[in-house]
Structures are given as structure tokens and as C-alpha cells.
Nucleic acid binder design. Structure first.
Lengths: 240, 240
DNA sequence: TCCGTGACCAGATTCGAAATCTGGTCACGA
DNA sequence: TCGTGACCAGATTTCGAATCTGGTCACGGA
């Protein structure tokens, strides 16, 4: 594993274990088996390093999302998309820490991230909007609300599930699969036109599959551009 | 307005304006135009006083919910219930502060409240569970998930919307009515069997109305007992 | 007699200056 | 040329003194 990668890995592990404030550049360098100065050969500041750590996790999640969409067009459905994103989120300690314990783990880092990632976040907004429009055009998403309202519904609902571990403590179902399934059903009921097309073999399920396959070529590139922007943003944190 | 009421009012105003830590009993007494000792004639501790402030707001919200259900049986539908609760929540500065700015407004108060209200919260859980079972028995809520899963879906979704002001900043629709409508539609799509029965005049809408009217007598008493327990809990904060 | 009050106290909180720590640099050496 | 760790300024922590505040209770007025 190359130096930069080792540093990101070490920073991520320490972030999750100790929280932003408690982690020192010294400690990261030690764990990555490099000199302290070497960290600064790669990243301008501590903030930039941790921003890169977070972007790396987000990027992984995006890529895994894209892989699912390329394998199975049904993965473009909002329900699939969200349950996939939710499972990725649970599997990545950095992303989980991000939502789980804002104050203790992240300290003031959230503010910095919000500011630095404003552009990315705005673009992500547009991608989601475009995504919903395409799905509506293909009859996969209902037209009983405005796109803006559906986007709000999607974001708010997802936030609730993502935060549910922290908010609901033990009142949530134990298994991640079960929670992701409930999320999928909630999103499907809120936005989509079809019943669950996965085990379906009838003509309706076939139609959904076709429509998803037709929509995918419009949707995948948009998310690819989002992933690219994430990656560019991640590299922009590097020195020069 | 009687003394105790004036004190609660003053405490609520100051809580919202200054946050838990900054508010002193002295200041509350001054604003309520009573002596400091008088506050302690009514409540055992500062914590008990603020717990009462919060319970008072929750109780008001419960009562307003009950009033809606008694006026219009359709208000027992989860979608109506949640949009109603959301609008009550937005209208009450104390409840809003509770979700809006956890750290700054509430300080360590959240922990205390979580502990003290554990019993109430457990009971509330049971009421919601019973509520969903009754609605399922009357065919108003679907049976495509377990009740536990639907309860989780409801709680997680609602949390997301309740927190959306804080989380989504400016990416949420401006008007409270619009947000509450989107919440209603999301919940309806996730749980209910009917389309919006309110403007509906067809036989399906009529059937929904009938079923809701039939379910209401089973549901209203359960929420009445919850309101009573809230009130008892609120009074239990009083001295003796 | 009894309800309301504010002076009072102990413990919690804040303050401030000294001591320590840490992000970031850079001269040096491999 | 690339990597390093000693070094520095400013941020953070520490810790005892000073202040503040939750809670009590003896007293006074109705």
C-alpha cells in the first residue's frame, strides 16, 4: 500500500476511534509509519486530510452504487438506491461516525466540511433532481408531487433512517438488512409507481425492468459525473 | 394567570431564548414576578421544572391531536396524524428547540429527560404499536410489513422530517404547510391502503371514512391514556 | 396559621495565567 | 530529490482562586 493511502487509512481509523479533536498528525504519521512532515507533503492541513478521508469513503459508496446500477438496472430505483446506500453507509465506519455522534467525534469538523463541500453538495442536489426527472419520464416515479417535493421527501426520509441508530437507540430492528428493507419499502411507497419488482415475474414487473433498463443510460452518467467531482474534490485537498 | 403557569411560561420563554445552561432560577422567578423560593414551592429542582415545561408542550400537542381525531375520524390516519403533529411541533417554540439545536439549547438536559421519560417513552411505544394494529384490523394500514417494521418506518421517517430544518438547512421547502403535506404523502405511501381520502368523493374514499370512524373509538382512548400519563408525569415533577 | 420571600450556604462553574501540547515549517541528511 | 523530525508560535489544557447559582429555611406579612 502506498504512502498516501496508508496515511488516509490511519487517519480514518483514528478518527473513528478517537474523534477529530483527539487525533494528532503525529499519531497519524506514527501509525502510517511515516514522518510527520510527510503528511504535509501530501495534504495542506489537518482539515484537508480529514476532508479527504471523508471524501474517500463517500467516493467508495458512490462507486459501489454505480457498480450495482451497471450490474442490475433495477438498482436505479430510488428504493434500491437508498437501501444500497444505507448498507454501504453501515459498512463504512467513517460514514457511520459522521452521522452517529456529531458532537463527540467530529468537533468543529462538520462546519468546515459543510463549507468546503458546499459546491459538491449543490451539484449532488442537481443530480438527484435530474435523477428523479428521468425516472418520472420513464414512469418509474409517480407525478403526484413536484420534483422538489419528492426530493425533499427522499432526503428527509433517508436522513431519518440514517440517523435512526443514534435517535432510536434500541427501538430499531436489530439487523441491518431488515432496516434497509424497511427503508426501501418506505421510499418505494413514497415515490415509486411499482410494487417490489424483484421477485415479481408478472408483466408489470417485466415492464418495470424494461423501464429501468431504459432509464439507466440517462442516470448512470449523471452519477458518474458526481463521483468524478467527488474524486476531483478529494484530489484538490492534496498539496498543489 | 396563576403562579405555577406563569413560572412555566417564563421558563419556556427563557429556555428557547437562552438555552438550558444560561437560564437561572433567579431569572425565571423575576420574569414570573415571584420570589425565587416560590419556584421551589412548586418544583423540586431546576431539572423537574424544565421537564415540566417540555411535558406541558408535549401534552398540548397530544391534546390538539386528540381534538382533531374527535372532530374528524380521518385524523386517525398515520398521514394525518404525522402532518398534524408536525404542524403542532413547528408552532411550539419549546418543541422546536428540542429538535433544532440539541447541543446549544439543551446542554445536558437531554440525558436527564431521556432517563426520566423512559417509562413514558416505553408506553408511547406500546400505544403506537396498538394504534397500527387497530388500523391494520380496519384495513386502513397495509399488511406488507410486520407491525414492528411499520413502527420503525413511521418513527424513522418522522424523525427525518422533524429534523429536516436543522439538517437540510435551506434545501427544504419554505412553507410549513408544504413540508407537512409532503410528510403526509410519504407516510401514506409507506403505510396506508388508501389514496388521499380528503378531497375524494368516490366509493373508496367513503369506505376509508367509514373504516376510520370505526377505528377511532379504539384509538382515541389509547391516546387519551397516553395524554393522561404525560399529565401525571408532569404533575409528578411537582413537589409532593 | 400559613404562604411567599430573599439572604444565605455549599458545591458547581468560570476565570486567568502558567504550563503543555500540536499544527505546520524547513534545514538537513539519506 | 524526497523524506524527516527538531523547532516555533499559537492554541489548548491545567489548576487554584474567585464568582455564580441551585436549593434551603427562618422570617414576615396576610
Amino acid at each position: 500500500m502506498e504512502r498516501g493511502e496508508r496515511i488516509l487509512e490511519a487517519a480514518g481509523e483514528l478518527l473513528v476511534a478517537w474523534g477529530y479533536r483527539r487525533v494528532t498528525i503525529d499519531e497519524i504519521a506514527r501509525r502510517a509509519r511515516v514522518g510527520k512532515g510527510t503528511v504535509y507533503l501530501h495534504w495542506k492541513t489537518k482539515d484537508a486530510l480529514f476532508l479527504a478521508v471523508v471524501l474517500r469513503s463517500k467516493l467508495r459508496s458512490h462507486r459501489s452504487q454505480l457498480a450495482r446500477m451497471r450490474t442490475d438496472p433495477l438498482a436505479v430505483l430510488p428504493s434500491r438506491m437508498m437501501s444500497g446506500a444505507y448498507l454501504d453507509f453501515l459498512a463504512d465506519p467513517v460514514l457511520r461516525a459522521l452521522y452517529h455522534d456529531d458532537a463527540d467525534i467530529l468537533g468543529r469538523f462538520t462546519d468546515i466540511a459543510k463549507k468546503e463541500l458546499a459546491e459538491l453538495s449543490a451539484y449532488s442536489n442537481e443530480v438527484v433532481r435530474h435523477y428523479l426527472e428521468v425516472l418520472r419520464a420513464h414512469g418509474l416515479v409517480r407525478a403526484d408531487m413536484t420534483v422538489e417535493q419528492q426530493q425533499y421527501a427522499l432526503l428527509a426520509t433517508a436522513s431519518g433512517f440514517f440517523l435512526s441508530e443514534a435517535l432510536l437507540h434500541d427501538r430499531a430492528p436489530q439487523s441491518a438488512e431488515e432496516r434497509s428493507t424497511v427503508l426501501a419499502r418506505t421510499v418505494r411507497g413514497a415515490l415509486e409507481t411499482s410494487a417490489d419488482p424483484d421477485p415479481g415475474t408478472g408483466p408489470a414487473a417485466a415492464r418495470t425492468r424494461e423501464a429501468a433498463a431504459a432509464a439507466a443510460p440517462d442516470i448512470i452518467p449523471a452519477f458518474e459525473r458526481l463521483a468524478e467531482l467527488s474524486e476531483r474534490e478529494m484530489h484538490r485537498q492534496l498539496r498543489e
